[in-house]
Amino acid sequence: MNHKHLFYFWKVAKAGSIARAAEAINVTPQTLSGQIGLLESNLGTELFARQGRSIVLTEAGKMALEYADELFALSAELEVMIKHHPKGRPAEFRVGVSDAVPKSLACTLLQPAIHGEQSTRIVCREWQLDRLLAQLAVHELDMVISDAPVPPSFSVRAYNHRLLDSGISFLAAKRLIAETSAEFPACLNELPLLLPGEDSTVRTNLLPWLERERIRARVVGVFDDTALMAAFGKAGVGAFPVPTIAEDEFLTSGELAVIGRTTDVQVSYFAISVERRLTHPSVLAVTQSAQRIGLPVGE
């Protein structure tokens, strides 16, 4: 089988159209059609079928796409392993950190990657998960740390490596806590509440728990940025949830205190990479760092 023909098929299948795929890889639509025709001739079956003015995968095409995904994922993994491990000079570890991951946790996990046996320079980017995964897909990043696994809708194959789990702590300014005498979690009925944004895993997992506990939360603010939410919390605007594993990050100033904790609400953190089996030394350092924290690690 000619892998170039398979690559053209893969690009068309991912793009959903010959014209879009041709533009993306800078070849003519006629060239793409011809190369895919040769592949179909070699395999003895059609991979695409016409549906109106569009093309769709046949059953054979769907099977071929699964194998092509695997083949090109392994190819990308090989490229990462060889290209980004130069000898005789400091390596560069490019990691994306989802903006929902607490800064102190990210720092704890990543420090061993810098101080390992090999001199390593870290390039750290913080952004929304979908943007970071797009950079991972084109090998601009070696790894992404996130509070959510790869979404099912993500078209490029990447692998979730579970790092650790944490319960949730509720914090508030000490003067705000003084306004209620109710026990946790009932006190949340009496306090204004700040919540993470809609894309946050903490928020997604928290809302059903509030309902089960019959908490009628008075939400006075919603924040995509955890640091900004904490700043409003310090100002006494409302109580807010954070992962228990990172609560010390918010308590160091002395302005906030813990109202209560629950393990009934869990948030998990993942290392996402193009490697199915972790071999990148810096990624391995991160997973080993999670193990030293003493919480569950697995895949």
Rank of each mutant, 00 (worst) to 15 (best):
T120R: 08
E66G: 05
R277S: 15
A60G: 03
D99G: 12
A182W: 11
A290Q: 02
D130M: 10
M81N: 15
E190V: 05
R203L: 12
D199C: 14
L57D: 05
S253E: 13
N205E: 08
I215V: 13
G298W: 07
L141I: 07
G116Q: 12
A285C: 05
S104I: 14
D147M: 08
K14Q: 15
V265W: 00
S166M: 02
K14L: 13
H115K: 07
G236H: 07
R94D: 03
E213W: 13
L47V: 10
T201L: 09
L195R: 08
G260P: 09
R277N: 15
L32M: 15
S200Y: 04
L141V: 09
N26F: 11
S289N: 04
F48I: 00
D147H: 12
L133R: 13
L109N: 05
A21H: 05
F232S: 12
S166Q: 07
E117V: 01
S181N: 13
A148Q: 13
R121P: 00
A21V: 01
S273R: 03
E92S: 14
P196W: 03
V265H: 01
H3F: 02
I245Q: 11
I215F: 02
Q135Y: 11
S289D: 07
N42D: 13
S181D: 11
S98H: 08
C107K: 11
E66W: 04
L38W: 09
P192Y: 11
R292H: 07
L195A: 10
Y8L: 12
F72M: 03
R261V: 07
V156W: 05
A24I: 03
F184A: 09
L129H: 01
I177P: 01
S169F: 05
T244P: 14
F93I: 06
E255Y: 12
R212N: 00
F7A: 14
V297P: 00
L195Q: 06
L71M: 15
D199R: 10
V56M: 10
C187D: 09
E117L: 07
Y67G: 01
T262I: 03
D99M: 06
K234L: 05
T204W: 06
P86W: 08
F72C: 03
M1T: 04
L71Y: 15
E183Q: 02
F7W: 14
P29H: 05
H161M: 04
E70A: 15
H85G: 09
A49Q: 11
F184H: 09
I82G: 02
S75V: 10
